[in-house]
Design a protein around this nucleic acid. Structure first.
Lengths: 301, 301
DNA sequence: AATATCAATGCGTTTTATGCATTAACTAAT
DNA sequence: ATTAGTTAATGCATAAAACGCATTGATATT
């Protein structure tokens, strides 16, 4: 067994396509095909089912794939750990985060971090709530920004960073657009524009409404925060969003209005795996995160 | 990076000796030496300190070694899992156990297991109490027989198998040798023969005595149960041991006498890691263990 | 039915690891 | 202090393994 075989295997397994895997690995198709066969011969099991020109994993192939993903994560982390050992400030931070933090919070933190450590590199992965948690547990990531923090996940270390206000975003010609504040109850009959199912931030809004006894009428869905802004801007509905995502500039033809009742907030924090230690550079970033938001809180109050 | 390099590295790291490692790997010394250098070049760190003709790990080398041990454990387990998937009855059970179970309990269970699954193989590792627990947590073993079960180890799954009586073993000419039972208090002034420090079974005896307000006078120490039997047999002292270790035959010139006050017992169980699943063959054995001792208990009562 | 695509395989070429021999540095013994 | 014996590293020729190309046989696609 060989690292190369495992690499080839993983690539073929994820793509279920030998030729594509070969391209992505920058080798000939025949090489990949042959290494897969070699691996199967050594393990004395079929990892793939060949149906015509299709290849897909056998049940045991799937198990093997999961195990190898784990092992390769351990090995990749070890390599990075060794490299970063001499020079943590030049290492890489791998971090996963929800879309709602993508626009403002994360870029701001990264910008500040790089002022102090200009050579640090980042690998960013936007993910849905559950994906994100799974990614940190399984070892694909050692750091995850998330809001709200998941309940009682015993494999995760959690740390609150800040709590943010949620405001209403309305089209500028909306009947409530001139108010200085709105109550959520006043939006009962409004068309909402929200993120699709699966995004936590959608759930936060829906839950807040349901606590008041109504289910929001979702008129349109947008795949990212900017899409939502566009929809509101076009007058197609109203939405709620964290205040920070509007901090730079308000979308054209919209107004943001504080939500006074209930006071909807969300708590954003960082999760790390309890089982694994952070890599040197990631540790720098983790400590920085806490320092950064502590200062921000001090500044606010 | 390459599996071969890691294998060579691990061998050199454990032996701190390139030539010996090469022998054990059945390759030339130059190959090992070369691969180590290649690995170091790729990682851009020195893994070994060369002092004259000595080689030993640098601090980062030690970290890398630990990570690779982990990764290799995962990979080895994955290989076994794949191989055993088709035929769990022909697989291998790796298990670690304390010396006190080596003489009777473990052989008996293995014998019974192999009556049902004659092709199952075993890899056995005798270990001290703490080593044993560490071994299961770290991933060197997935099964550990142990008595008593460790307290609140959150990474371990624990299962009680049986509780056994502890009896006194006396030289045949001992003043108490004719009694039908002894109280531990009656042995206050006796010379004891015990296992060395570090063995749980020694601690069990010492604790039992200390509960009665005395510290046993350890006249001789023996490295294994048979050594203790020999020492008692030679009249050099008395000892306590689990009744099962005496079930086959009593050592020459000794008598075993039930201990009535206090009724010293120990609970033997099996520990497995919570984080990892048992391999197919190990699962067979785990289930068998429970069945075996449940029946034994039924039989006794 | 014709064409395109795909995975597997035979074969010559290139890359990589290996073993042998040697070197340089060290240790231990005389 | 000298010498003999070890040890790890390196140059070099050889052996092993992976690679790419070309091809085959099977399967989708039109």
């Amino acid at each position: 067994m060989d690292f190369r075989q495992i690499r080839y295997f993983m690539e073929v397994a994820t793509r279920e396509h030998v030729t594509e895997a070969a391209h992505s690995l920058h080798v000939a198709q025949s090489s990949v095909s042959r290494q897969i066969v070699n691996l199967e011969n050594e393990l004395e099991v079929d990892l793939f089912i060949r149906e015509g020109r299709r290849v897909h994993l056998t049940p045991i192939g799937k198990i093997f794939f999961e195990r190898m993903k784990h092992a390769m994560n351990v090995i990749d982390d070890a390599r990075r750990e060794v490299k970063e050992y001499l020079d943590p400030e030049k290492g890489t931070i791998r971090i996963t985060f929800p879309i709602s933090l993508a626009a403002y919070t994360l870029p701001t933190v990264i910008y500040a971090f790089r002022l102090r450590y200009p050579e640090a590199k980042f690998q960013l992965k936007q993910a849905l709530y559950q994906e994100l948690i799974e990614g940190v547990i399984k070892g694909d990531f050692n750091l995850g920004l998330i809001g709200p923090l998941p309940l009682k996940e015993k494999k995760l270390q959690q740390k609150v960073l800040f709590t943010e206000n949620i405001v209403a975003l309305l089209p500028i010609h909306h009947r409530l657009a001139k108010e200085s504040s709105v109550k959520l109850q006043e939006l009962v009959d409004e068309p909402f524009v929200l993120l699709p199912e699966g995004f936590v931030f959608r759930d936060i809004v829906v839950n807040a409404c349901q606590n008041l006894g109504f289910t929001p009428n979702v008129a349109f869905e947008g795949d990212d925060i900017d899409a939502l802004k566009g929809l509101v801007s076009a007058g197609l509905g109203v939405t709620l969003m964290p205040e920070v995502t509007l901090v730079d500039s308000l979308p054209r033809s919209t107004v943001k209005i504080p939500l006074v009742e209930p006071n909807v907030t969300r708590t954003v924090g960082v999760i790390t795996p309890k089982e694994r230690a952070l890599l040197p550079t990631e540790k720098l970033f983790y400590d920085f995160l806490q320092e950064f938001f502590t200062r921000l809180d001090d500044f606010k109050s």
